[in-house]
Design a protein around this nucleic acid. Structure first.
Length: 996
DNA sequence: CGGTGAGTT
């Protein structure tokens, strides 16, 4: 440990041996291009990222066409495509390579960010918080009172242009990135139905078209114009028997006929219908994987992709070599693979390499109702790919699978599907869930209401697990503590449980027991340990509970499962003597603790899981019979104008509430207790808004531009992002040099039009190959100098993975726990200070902490013990390790002579490297600059220690968890601003100006 | 001096 500290204590290494290499103690000045003659040999430093459109003098990469404005004829485009196909691969790589080695951070660029931000000049006219809130409330059309009308007009113009056809302009500037046709990324405005998909396909055209018995249907349904292919599957009799119980088997023929006759089919079936596991099998049997092609299925989550591939392989009695999966960091796809499960992001990346997805005959988009951004983009892209493939007489089938009937965004969207695809509805095999509404809706204390409801269920109702939905970690833990105190375990846990538990969990367990015993000894001596009808002292609920007991009579028999919500409470039912096995569940919880909810609870106890939204879709807990739904959800909100985000708790949608309720009926009939009235429920939104409409989209826009989709506003999004979000994305990407800025010479009207159709630059293409946010991709693209790449990769990986540090700030259940927590917090704070380094390194601020934490963790072998001791989340560190690996590979691919590898014993950066890294970080976060307010500005107390940013009139502050909190440098750049009690700059900051 | 839901390349 001591050794380790020395390694990552920059002071220890650099100051103990001042001048370790030839490096002078003073960091070099800003102008990198003057520093290292070797790496800059032959480089035109003036051709930095600011002039990205300029073609290189590379003889290999002649600009394909410079007579741009003139639309190309079909013939011309075909010819162009041939040329491109021949030259593209070579030239593209060469171009990227050159670009990478060429890119420098120039002082000019830094100044650009600086002046652009107009800090401290007091002359800006930006939105206040109040204004921007209002804008959001008004909806996307009205951007602001100043510019709303004209932006609206602008949007109309863009849409009009759409009808002119967007085909011509795309293929001239940037060559298609891959050997597809030149217009590959060009999405024809009106795709038309492919061959073999004629017919009046109204939404209900399939209802009652067939009455063939299930099981034989697949032999009848086969792709048209294909020789009869039927690939038999040797299922075991047990498998077959299980399978036949699934309702979707009855729909096999309907589905397969629909697929045969239509290029695009929507399958709706709630959870339990078996669509995810069965439809791929139907397609396989019908020969959709013949001719060496693949059936592709996308899932929104990695675990689902892996689990589904394993399950389907087992059901089909096939090896994982045939039924395989591919997720971000791993996969088991082979040459033999015929059914491939993958995450939606993986398929999106594949489209970048092969726009027409020629390896696939069918693509299934699963869980489309969740409307993840990748799912939405895939559907938009696939709608066009399907018609492009049809024109090539290589038809591609698209199946969209949704758990709800909310498919109007797909069927009623003319731009997406001019011919609405048919919808096949599938019954599900869920057990009935009785929903009980509260008569009244608690205004604030839904947590307390949850507690009371769980108590009642536990005391009054028959065996069966309880699942409680709350909104956040802190709430989950608080309720767990309350419930454990109310229903302590009387018997020892089985020893193997103890081993699984972490030290902390065990300690908490002991704590809660002693605490409960104390409470009983002190105030409830007369009550036996097996009687849980009375709460321990200090709960603060005694009054209410007592009140409830009196009204017990009114309740009726114990079979009446409607517990009411008006203060009635259970008496001493026999079941009430059951101990309650309380477990927390949320996404950031350590996986081994998450896994506990899948274990059967200790004998003679009732399982009670207190969860956040993870339990709504991501994790299914077995044995749940009762669901308690507080009706709230915590969501992140982005201010579209300022980019400031905040977390807000709001009502869920009706669909979410129903999804939560459904979790009670997976094994047997269940009950759902909603802690709000049916009137309130009826006011809920029907569905949650798609993510696409809620978040910044610069990463998606860059991906699309890399597919040569220039006019992103014309893209057939199922639900488009707001125009402000699109404009903000393009502006950021232009500022990063990923897109070409509109020509200033153009007329106002042209300028406005081109603002949303900026072509991608060579740098942008390079950035798009890095699987991280554009800001971070830019950092990587800039780092090929002075040996900065390994550090930049580590920094980017650490900034990408959220929540590096464990949450240690929750209130402790006891003094003993409190002191332990305090010790851990102190230890983490100390480590942070050490990792923050000395001298120049300090100016890297929290980013140096990230670098130090990752470096130290890897140096120690990344053990769970090290993470535990230093407050690091083990899972996060593993993710960073894998991401470093992936990014290292990605950089090596673009730039093989870098010869990078992931070094677990990476040395801390030298002082001069630190300076370069600060510049690199600023280049990515240049628009996230803040300046300390001048003392003469301190008219108001609210500006004490405050910073000013270009876009916000209100003060922002360095977050107290930052190592720069007390330093208050004049300038900082920040990862993000999150509004809580104040507006805090969070994530990491690199501070100080100028940067040398 | 602090309050962070769930996903993904």
């Amino acid at each position: 440990m001591g050794k380790l500290r020395r390694r990552y204590n920059v002071k220890g290494r650099l100051q103990a041996t001042p001048g370790p290499s030839k490096g002078p103690p003073e960091p070099p000045p800003v102008r990198l291009e003057l520093e290292d003659k070797d790496t800059l040999k032959g480089v035109d430093a003036s051709n930095a990222l600011v002039l990205p459109g300029k073609k290189k003098k590379k003889p290999k990469a002649p600009p394909p066409s410079k007579k741009e404005k003139k639309p190309l004829t079909k013939k011309e485009r075909k010819m162009l495509q041939k040329i491109l196909e021949q030259k593209e691969k070579k030239s593209q790589r060469a171009e990227m390579l050159q670009k990478l080695s060429q890119v420098q951070i120039s002082e000019a660029e830094l100044r650009l960010f600086y002046t652009a931000s107009k800090l401290g000049t007091g002359d800006r006219m930006y939105h206040t918080r109040e204004k921007s809130d209002k804008i959001e409330a008004q909806g996307q059309e009205k951007i602001s009172s100043l510019s709303g009308a004209h932006r609206k007009r602008y949007r109309q113009e863009l849409e009009e242009e759409d009808s002119e056809s967007s085909v011509e302009s795309e293929s001239n500037e940037a060559p298609a990135s891959e050997p597809v046709q030149a217009g590959a990324g060009v999405l024809p405005a009106a795709p038309g139905a492919g061959p073999g998909s004629p017919g009046p396909s109204s939404q209900h055209s399939l209802a009652g078209t067939t009455s063939a018995p299930p099981g034989v249907a697949s032999t009848l349904a086969r792709p048209p114009a294909k020789p009869s292919v039927f690939i038999p599957v040797n299922r075991t009799p047990e498998m077959q028997e299980e399978r036949l119980k699934l309702p979707i088997l009855a729909e096999e023929q309907v589905i397969m006929e629909a697929v045969a006759e239509h290029p695009i089919v929507i399958v709706c079936g709630e959870t339990g219908s078996g669509k995810t596991t069965q439809v791929p099998q139907f397609l396989y049997e019908a020969g959709y994987s013949s001719d060496n092609s693949i059936i592709g299925i996308t899932e929104p989550r990695r675990v689902a992709a892996v689990a589904m591939s394993q399950r389907v392989a087992k059901e089909m009695n096939l090896s994982q070599r045939v039924v395989s999966y591919q997720i971000r960091y791993e996969g088991n796809v082979t040459e033999e693979t015929r059914i491939k499960f993958m995450t939606d992001g993986v398929l999106l990346k594949e489209i970048q390499k092969d726009f027409l997805l020629l390896r696939y005959k069918v693509v299934l988009i699963d869980e489309a109702h969740e409307r993840s951004v990748y799912t939405d983009i895939l559907i938009g892209l696939l709608s066009r790919i399907v018609s492009l493939r049809a024109k090539r007489h290589l038809p591609l089938k698209l199946l969209i699978m949704s758990a709800t009937l909310r498919v109007e965004d797909f069927t009623q969207n003319q731009r997406l599907f001019p011919q609405p695809p048919p919808v096949v509805k599938v019954e599900s095999r869920q057990f009935p869930v009785t929903v009980h509404f509260n008569k009244r809706t608690p205004l604030e204390d839904y947590s307390g209401e949850c507690f009371r409801k769980v108590c009642k269920i536990h005391r009054m109702l028959p065996a069966g697990g309880i699942l409680v939905f709350l909104t956040g970690q802190a709430e989950v833990h608080a309720l767990c503590r309350r419930l454990r105190r109310a229903f302590p375990h009387t018997r020892r846990r089985p020893p193997e449980k103890d081993q699984e538990d972490s030290v902390e969990e065990m300690r908490k367990f002991k704590k809660s027991r002693t605490r409960a015993k104390k409470a009983q000894a002190a105030t409830l001596p007369q009550i036996s340990l097996d009687n849980y009808s009375v709460l321990p002292a200090g709960e603060g609920d005694e009054d209410r509970e007592a009140e409830m007991d009196e009204e017990e009579e009114a309740l009726g028999s114990d079979l009446d499962l409607d517990l009411g919500d008006e203060g009635t409470d259970g008496g001493e039912q026999p079941d009430a003597s059951l101990p309650l096995h309380v477990l927390p569940l949320y996404s950031l919880l350590a996986p081994e603790k998450q896994a506990q909810v899948f274990q059967p609870p200790p004998e003679g106890t009732r399982l009670c899981v207190v969860a956040t939204n993870v339990a709504e879709t991501s994790l299914t807990i077995p044995g749940i019979k009762y669901v308690v739904d507080c009706g709230k959800v915590k969501k992140r909100h982005y201010d579209r104008v300022t980019g400031v985000s905040s977390f807000r708790v709001s009502w869920v949608s009706q669909a979410s509430a129903d999804q939560r309720a459904g979790r009670a009926g997976r094994m047997e009939p269940g009950h759902c207790y909603r802690l709000y009235s049916s009137a309130v429920f009826s006011d809920f939104e029907q569905f949650p808004p798609p993510e696409m409409a809620r978040r910044p989209v610069e990463d998606l826009i860059l991906q699309m531009k890399a597919l040569n989709i220039e006019k992103v506003i014309n893209f057939p999004f199922p639900t488009p992002p707001s125009v402000e979000a699109l404009i903000a994305a393009e502006e950021l990407l232009v500022a990063l040099g990923a897109l070409q800025a509109p020509q200033k010479t153009e007329s106002m009207k042209q300028l406005q039009r081109s603002r949303l159709s900026c072509p991608i630059t060579a740098l942008g293409r390079t950035m798009a190959t890095f699987p991280v946010a554009p800001r971070y991709a830019k950092m990587l693209a800039l780092s090929r100098q002075h040996g900065c790449l390994p550090y930049a990769i580590t920094i980017v990986a650490a900034m990408t993975v959220r929540e590096l540090f464990e949450e240690l700030d929750r209130p402790a259940a006891s003094d003993e726990e409190l002191s332990r927590l305090k010790d851990r917090r102190a230890r983490v704070a100390q480590m942070k200070r050490i990792w923050a380094g000395q001298g120049a390194a300090r100016k890297l601020g929290d980013i140096m902490v990230l670098l130090g934490a990752v470096g130290a963790c890897e140096y120690s072998g990344c053990s769970p013990q090290f993470c535990e001791a230093n407050g690091l989340r083990y899972k996060a560190m593993m993710e960073i390790r894998r991401l470093r690996g992936q990014l290292t590979t990605a950089v090596n691919t673009v730039c093989p002579e870098a010869g990078l590898f992931v070094d677990p014993k990476m040395q801390p950066p030298s002082e001069s490297q630190v300076t370069y890294l600060r510049q690199i970080v600023v280049a990515g976060l240049g628009d996230h600059l803040a300046r300390r307010v001048q003392s003469e500005d301190l008219l108001d107390d609210k500006w004490k220690n405050a910073y000013k940013t270009p876009l916000l009139d209100d003060p922002v502050f360095i977050h107290p968890s930052s190592v720069l909190f007390k330093e208050l440098p004049e300038f900082v750049v920040y990862q993000e601003i999150v509004e809580t009690t104040k507006m805090y700059m969070k994530g990491s900051q690199a501070g100080g100006w100028p940067l040398a």
